[in-house]
């Protein structure tokens, strides 16, 4: 049997808590090139993700909004991982994260080592949407027609 304490540490790892307490790039950029609102109807959380591009390169990613520790940590880690990527690289990172959350595969991608701290949410079906919220919004901002996504 799992002890409750150990299980909890698997989802709320130190890195996750650090990012959720002091999220990186939680701000409104002056003139974002693109943005999208991510909404999780289950908990009412709303995150807006912004990006600035220079040619093919994503030079800035930021987010605003309220969320649980998981969604905020995931958004914060995402801004670190994506800033500096090309649009193609970003697409493959987004895909790799989605895969990480939806399957048992662990991430091999070196740019995602930090995100791997969120792996623990896989055991919590109702919380996976929290982890993917910012990523889905980013995909919508960068590639989508819809600038509002819902996790449902």
């Amino acid at each position: 049997m799992n002890s409750a304490g150990e299980d909890l540490q698997a989802i709320y790892r130190k890195q996750v808590l650090e990012h959720s307490r002091n999220p990186h790039n939680q701000r409104h950029p002056e003139a974002p090139d693109c943005e999208a609102l991510g909404f999780n109807p289950l908990c009412g959380d709303k995150l807006t993700v912004y990006a600035n591009l220079q040619g093919d390169k994503i030079i800035d990613v930021a987010f605003e909004g309220t969320g649980c520790a998981i969604s905020v940590a995931s958004a914060s880690m995402m801004t670190d991982a994506i800033t500096g990527c090309s649009l193609t690289e970003a697409a493959s990172l987004i895909e790799a994260t989605q895969k990480m959350f939806s399957s048992d595969q662990s991430v091999k991608n070196t740019q995602l080592t930090e995100i791997a701290a969120l792996e623990g949410v896989r055991s919590y079906p109702s919380r996976i949407k929290c982890a993917t919220l910012a990523w889905t919004a980013l995909a919508a901002a960068l590639y989508g027609q819809d600038n509002q996504i819902s996790t449902e």
């Binding site: 909890l8 649980c68 998981i70």
Partner: peptide
């Protein structure tokens, strides 16, 4: 503490 995180911790208890 976001209610959702609270819910997960409480579930563990």
């Amino acid at each position: 503490i976001h209610p959702h995180d609270l819910g997960t911790v409480l579930d563990h208890k």
